[in-house]
Design a protein around this nucleic acid. Structure first.
Lengths: 253, 253
DNA sequence: CAAAACACTGTACACTGTTCGGACTATTTT
DNA sequence: AAAATAGTCCGAACAGTGTACAGTGTTTTG
């Protein structure tokens, strides 16, 4: 992971909630902070695997690189502002939504966010400085389990479990999605060149994996989506159901 | 994520299964490939958040940086060798282990690996070139669900769900573990300086979060472990139980 | 009008992974 | 035995990265 709560968190908190204070003397800022954050998101989205570059961002904004640092103390702070900005655009489950539907909605919209903004997966969350929209999302998740009669420890742990699962499974989805572009090879090409060599080394020592392979579980893309991506999305739903069922066993029963 | 299946996968596969072939002419290698991989793991472990540096690795080995590239085509391949090497050291559940205990063992030993080698979280898995020990681990996971009478799609999806959850929750644990060292602030200091400022901005708009805060769910470390780490470990177990319960509902019942 | 404060910028520093040309060495071929 | 060759090893360089610093110009305050 990279960049979490580096730099002065008090400053970050102020930026998140109050924005950038206008200078009391001297020339005004030529840009709004939100312009920088939006441009940074756009730039990071395009960069894909490669991290956001402050130079590229400055160029996109038509300013010098060093000028960015008059708006934002460092790249770490900028990333935190970007996280908050993404949260602002995410839908919240409407009030009166049942806990299961609500948690599912939150997880699904998180998946959408991770797929649209893969760099989110790189931002560590341990020392996240909470902005209003990130906080609202957490509040909504807690609210969903209001009527379940659970102790606070379980409520927070269950929400965290959904988040952790979502993050892990979304990483698998994003990796499957980006692999062809990153490596310049389609899933089919990949397995066609590797499968025979791998099978040879495997000998008879991995019967269950060999069975999967001959069953075509690895290759074969018979849809518009590449196979590994379709499989990752399929598994996302299946695994999410497992987690929600686990919660259900402690809520309803 | 960084580095997955970059470079020639056929070459990587050969390195993983057959090792480095001795040169047919000219001077022999001064080092064994395993020395490089082990040193790389040690170096990456120490580097913590910062990524492994080829220069630092070369220095540790007492060779020039460019020499590394006579052993390994690129850093991406090296990382794949490191993953395989870590898998070699991980325990497998003994035969005849029940599926629940077995999957739990696998997840727990994965957590240990993630905590010992945080860089594992950065390695993308979509285009992983499988080495023998990584494969053996997957085979063992599949074997645990042999007697459950599940279709292959469910078996693989359930194993993937445990893996995804483990990865996500382990990331939370590792981030909690590394945060104090990375930022130079303890959890307590962090919240003491931020909590009043945050509470002020929150107003009354986040009652459930405020309730958590006043209940001391955020601060207070009354153990040898920092609080956020203890909480992350606690949540790891709770969430893992949720996933396993979800699987159990489809296996036993 | 002078002085302070501040946005803005070109340049520099220390770092990254990787490539290239050359020096050296051990094996194979002649 | 001599020559050719493949391959290890290495110093230096290239194109990047985030950020610090000194300097310039502009706006507001006293």
């Amino acid at each position: 992971m990279e960049y979490a709560g580096r730099g002065d968190p008090v400053r970050t908190l102020a930026l998140l909630w109050d924005g950038l204070p206008p200078p009391k003397r001297g020339p005004r800022h030529r840009l709004h902070l939100s312009q920088i954050v939006d441009a940074a998101i756009a730039e990071a989205d395009m960069a894909g695997q490669a991290a956001l570059s402050m130079r590229a961002l400055a160029q996109r904004l038509g300013i010098a690189t060093a000028t960015l640092y008059t708006y934002v103390p460092s790249k770490a702070e900028l990333l935190e502002l970007m996280v908050e900005r993404v949260a602002e655009g995410q839908p919240l489950p409407p009030p009166e939504t049942g806990w299961r539907r609500g948690l599912r909605d939150l997880a699904e919209s998180d998946l959408v966010a991770y797929r649209s903004h893969p760099w989110l997966l790189q931002v560590a969350t341990a020392r996240t400085v909470f902005g209003p929209h990130v906080l609202a999302r957490y509040e909504a998740a807690l609210a969903l389990l209001d009527d379940a009669g659970l102790p606070a420890r379980d409520v927070t742990a269950f929400v965290a479990a959904v988040d952790s699962y979502t993050r892990g499974a979304a990483a698998a989805v994003v990796e499957a999605e980006q692999a062809p572009g990153q490596t310049g090879t389609t899933d089919d090409e990949w397995w066609e060149s590797l499968a025979p060599l791998l099978e040879e080394r495997m000998g008879g020592r991995f019967p269950r994996i060999a069975a999967l392979e001959t069953a075509g579980a690895f290759v074969v893309s018979d849809s518009t989506l590449p196979y590994t991506l379709r499989r990752a999305l399929d598994r996302f739903e299946i695994g999410l159901d497992l987690v929600l069922d686990g919660i259900g066993a402690r809520v309803d029963g």
